[in-house]
Amino acid sequence: MSYDVLVIGGGPAGLSAAINAHARGKSVLVVSNPLEENPLWRSEKVDNYLGLPAMTGAELLTAFQKHAESAGATFKVGRVLNAAMMGNEWYVSIGSDVEEARTVVLAAGVARGNKFPGEEEFLGRGVSYCATCDGMLYRERPVAVLGWADSARQEADFLTSIGCQVSFFEKPKTCEIKGDKTVESVTCDGKTVQADCVFILRPAMPPTDLFPGLSMDGGFVAVNRQMATNLPGLFAAGDCTGGPLQVSKAAGEGLIAGQSAARWIDKKQRENQ
């Protein structure tokens, strides 16, 4: 089915966008990593969220998600790999699935575009961001998984289950991917392993990799007061649009983005009548 609004990210910005778009009668799908993988989950005390002092990040996130769920938003756990506008719809791929929506709210937090040496050079020639997509091409062969979350461990287990010989690097700091025509090895934090493919599973893809042509400003997604980006039907909210990286700011921006997405859909509908 096609949704009115697809929200990428299940933090304060994304959930606020979901609640506000849903309140305007729009169908909403929230795609996010598991809640516990949100950086806010580990925050021991958030003391500047108005009216709710001294909450932990986990308490806030749990309450936010419960609110969005009870409001009627649909949830899907997974990492968004690609997004593209075709016709008048956004198509978003999550692992082996594709979802459709008329608008997208990008609220995936800070995903810096810093890449490892060799990563860009060998993309598609032994560097992959999708274990479910490309794993089968490397059965019986050595692969490396660079993972930053529990879900990356699960993807490594999937690769092992289909017969890949997996070396797992947990949250490596510095890596270098080497090879000739294709990837041959990867070195992370001083340890080198042979690998025909290196799966790089970061918590989120950098915005410009997800959305080719997206305008940035100082490393963050460029938005206007309506939280609209330069791409039609794409809005952004929260940490991905810049600081301060705080819950109140994210929730406020999410509200605007959700309402703007709803308004955008209504406007398109009027134009088509």
Binding site: M86, Y91, S93, G95, S96, D97, C130, C133, M136
Partner: peptide
């Protein structure tokens, strides 16, 4: 392509 690949479907 393959059926297990979201970007392929797109």
């Amino acid at each position: 392509w393959a059926s297990w690949c979201g970007p392929c479907k797109m």
